[in-house]
Design a binder for these strands. Structure first.
Lengths: 276, 276
DNA sequence: GCTGTTATTAACAAAATGTTAAAAAGAGTA
DNA sequence: TACTCTTTTTAACATTTTGTTAATAACAGC
């Protein structure tokens, strides 16, 4: 068989192909938006505290009406998969050109009560200073606190207007698989969003150690202590200054600027050194 | 609004919901099966060489008839997403209870010439000793060789009956995103399979350093040198014996058995120490 | 100038990793 | 039996990285 014939066969086949031959379902995308919040410290001489936070929106329609959920939407039939989270994010937060990374695809049969839906979850990292407009009325930032016990992970999400709490139980040994956990005590979050959030936190804690993704959440200029605080809230533990500085100093460049007026030695401002 | 009313609203909504409201498409799953092959060394006194290899099947139908591809199939409408790769793997290789991990979801609009298909790729690790039956006539193991130049990655897949070669060009800085690469010079592989294979290799090389996944490809008993060889073929570089042994000795237990008769000091046989 | 505060780094300790080379334990062979 | 060839195994040291403590620096406010 020569190549011409083969191409011809393929064309004939494609022209007579019936696309309804296989089961068809809907595909959605959720976006787990991470950012860093400053919360004012009551002691006016102390530094503001950094908080690791995620963006949730309140559902206006059924199903899960009035519950919080991750911003998301349906994939369109003629739309690149990678475009869907961009489009949704632009619509919900007016953010463009943010760091996006595919997180995991969730496909439990009953995850949506309406119909069979498979969800491709993405993770976005934003520098909240770049938020041009106010958030929509039904969106809010929630600070993340994670409490780990034996086979149980409790996550508390706290905004100015609401507090969400849920627990994940480990039902399986495979620690890197989000489906190794079962959701319990979830009152306020829609769909399987607790799994998406948990898996995103896990991914962040891992990748922070061997990539430069944190810098997507930093402003252009920052002090090393501010950067260290971001590492600390993501990792959920304190780091020692000298050790942190040794490791991070390859990734940043000192600038001519300082942050002063704080009642102590001014801190030098650094910026990210692009590795090229 | 009380909870009873809310539940009632939700039920009313669900009963009147029209599932054809949103675009619907087909979902497939591909499985990148990794294994380790022994190739006999021509010098009879030398040890057999370990090769890192993947399983490909030859397509019998259009599209891409007679090209090699990853084993895969369509997700059924009432099937758990995690079940699809299990079902496909059982059918194609007669393997059950293998290590499976979700790799990435590929959703370029034109990745399948027939219809809009989104593909959830999985990675499987198998110990080839457990293969109970012969492979199907149209399946074969291909040894993997990867050659990295500047912005170019060349991958050579070699089986007893065929040799496949393709190149990926880096078109984007984001090194962890498979879509940062463009496929060139691909003659023999179907769909976007080169991207799946490349991303799987990347994932393996990363995870081998901070997880115990290699042991899914090892037989029950193995020598430390055999284990080291597996690390070496996956990482694509030689390791120094004492350094490797120091790191790996926490993960294995020495057994009472030895492998002898090789014309040199016998090697102690170890087994995986489950971390529990 | 003194106090309170945080930034920055020096200096040392401890741990991890890289490297070289020697010893151990067999099979084959003269 | 003694010697060679081979690979396994580890000792011993060098080097690098990381952990820790504590000293010094530089400001604001009083």
């Amino acid at each position: 068989m020569n190549s011409k014939n083969s191409d011809h066969d393929e064309l004939t086949f494609l022209n007579s192909y019936d696309p309804t031959l296989y089961d068809r379902l809907s595909l959605t995308t959720d976006i787990l938006v991470f950012g860093i919040s400053d919360s004012i410290n009551p002691n006016y001489r102390k530094l503001p505290e950094k908080k690791f936070s995620i963006l949730l929106v309140k559902r206006k329609t059924h199903p899960f009406k009035d519950k919080w959920c991750l911003p998301g939407g349906f994939l369109q039939i003629d739309e690149e998969l990678t475009n869907a989270p961009k489009r949704v994010l632009a619509k919900e937060t007016n953010l463009h050109d943010v760091y996006l990374e595919q997180l995991y695809t969730f496909g439990a049969v009953n995850r949506d009560p309406r119909l069979r839906v498979v969800n491709v979850a993405y993770m976005a990292l934003i520098n909240k200073d770049q938020l041009q407009d106010e958030l929509l009325a039904d969106a809010a930032w929630f600070n993340v606190t994670q409490i780990q016990k034996e086979n149980e992970i409790k996550i508390i999400l706290k905004s100015e207007i609401d507090e969400i709490c849920f627990t994940l139980l480990k039902i399986n040994d495979d620690i890197n698989d989000p489906l190794s956990y079962k959701i319990v005590d979830n009152e306020l979050l829609a769909f399987d969003n607790p799994l998406v959030i948990f898996f995103g936190l896990l991914r962040m804690r891992n990748k922070i150690n061997y990539t430069d993704i944190v810098f997507n959440m930093m402003p252009k200029y920052f002090t090393l202590k501010e950067l260290q605080n971001v590492y600390e809230v993501i990792l959920g533990r304190k780091l020692l200054d000298p050790a942190f500085r040794r490791i991070i100093k390859d990734k940043v460049v000192q600038t001519e600027f300082v942050r002063s007026g704080k009642g102590h030695r001014p801190s030098l401002l650094y910026r990210y050194k692009d590795p090229t």
